[in-house]
Nucleic acid binder design. Structure first.
Lengths: 263, 263
DNA sequence: AAGTGGTCTAGACCACCGT
DNA sequence: CGGTGGTCTAGACCACTTG
């Protein structure tokens, strides 16, 4: 037969793990540290610790889960590599937050051609509560007709408009979002979502293509109709790989470019 | 004073590491496993093991470097995370190769809109040995006027042209590259570079923008002049962060898109 | 069975941060 | 100083591959 972890973690949770026997031909063996990682992610998802907060020390977690510190360490290592946690030597381990300077506009891969650091300013244009059409429903895994919030906004770099965004958000999580709220907010949208709605974006997937500017977009970005624009479609995920946002950004790449590092 | 590692690695190499005292206000402390990682990368760079080959076992390396297996393991962990090495349980640890199916067109982020897997075919159009102009020289860190190889080629997906590439290579490394050689080659260019020139691309940085098609490109890609194309400029690096290639690809995104995962 | 990487432990000590 | 993460060790045992 198969590979099961027989170790007890915490008495109260030991039954929640490793329940699946090696069914079919999928081994489904999960080492202790990965089970612990899963537990920690569940606790993040449940809001046990909020963004920016310190989680318990490795020693404490080791005791709590009844494993060695090295095992906890390996779980945290993986989570730090996925940007879920941030380790700070001498201080502790913290939940990654978009409030952290290092995470300002963490998912915005635009850079100025002249190399100067970009300072983005968000200019909200609209916020309407509607229902999901097929395309949006499919992107963020909702039934068609489910409530969604549609946001339009302009991103300006040094006062010049560079990105026009259409954003759709899962309605349940953002039912109270208003245009005024965004207009008085001075930081990134993800920082707003995190601090006001408790929704922290941790991962995203983008699809890029080149498209001609249509009249409305051309107007907002101050370019001629037909100007090639970079279309960036993004699905963003919170803890537990839940898709909660779909957006399409149209980037004017006259003086900026999209940067990507290939490992 | 400061932090120096006092451990002897190998007798023959112990003098090569940790020579810098904590000058200025830079601690410059390097843990053992990172010193070992540097040594291993140097050996990869020197061709000690070629792409696809198995490197010595962790136990052997531990003995060779006079450290514990766990320390070697941590060095290899980092290298595996950077795609320099691939671990295979029960078999060994191997140098990452573009011959591996998982690495075919490893840096090509194009996907078909309909979700079907893409099968790329390279169509070489030209190969000339010239000297570097300022732009190319700057990109791959050569003096202006240094020899470079200029390659033009078309990438076809299912017979349809999708990418037009202009590629510049460091001349010293590819002095014997010919058009015929590429025309008879059935696989990716990076696989050719690796197996015929011993140059393995391990990392790249891309800058993307949207541009209108000019006449020549439009002709090659079968689109109208002015059609928005995705311009992808790439600098590719071998071991030791040496830039050896600069290219600009023009992607027709009518039926394909560029995929990017944001961690 | 022998050899490889993968997991887990227990403990020592170091580097860094705050008080 | 005590608490945190960071490094390193030595050894046991597990999982996977090959002969």
């Amino acid at each position: 037969m198969g590979h099961t972890i027989k170790r007890d973690l915490m008495p109260m949770i030991k039954n929640s793990i490793q329940t699946k026997p090696p069914s079919g031909n999928v081994p489904a063996f999960s080492p202790l540290y990965r089970q612990i990682k899963t537990l920690l992610i569940d606790q993040l998802d449940a809001g046990e610790w909020s963004a920016g907060e310190m989680i318990p020390s490795e020693a404490e977690l080791a005791q709590r889960f009844n494993v060695s510190q090295g095992t906890v360490r390996k779980a945290i290592d993986e989570m730090a590599a996925e940007n879920l946690l941030v380790r700070r030597q001498g201080k502790g381990t913290f939940v990654t937050t978009h409030e952290d300077p290092a995470s300002f506009f963490r998912f915005l891969r635009l850079a100025a051609d002249n190399g100067e650091p970009v300072l983005a300013q968000s200019q909200p244009l609209g916020c309407t509560h509607i229902v999901a059409d097929a395309r949006v429903a499919n992107a963020i895994d909702l039934p068609e007709g489910a409530p969604v919030v549609h946001v339009q906004r302009l991103l300006e770099f040094d006062g010049a408009p560079v990105v026009f965004d259409d954003i759709w958000l899962a309605g349940e999580l953002f039912s109270t979002l208003t245009l005024e709220q965004m207009q008085t907010w001075k930081h990134s949208l993800y920082r707003l979502f995190e601090s006001q709605f408790g929704v922290c974006m941790v991962r995203a997937e983008e699809h890029l293509r080149a498209v001609p500017a249509i009249a409305e977009t051309a107007h907002h970005l101050g370019v001629a109709v037909g100007t090639p624009l970079l279309s960036v479609e993004r699905v963003a995920y919170t803890y537990g790989d839940k898709a909660v946002e779909w957006r399409r950004g149209l980037y004017s790449t006259a003086r900026h470019h999209y940067v990507n590092i290939l490992g």
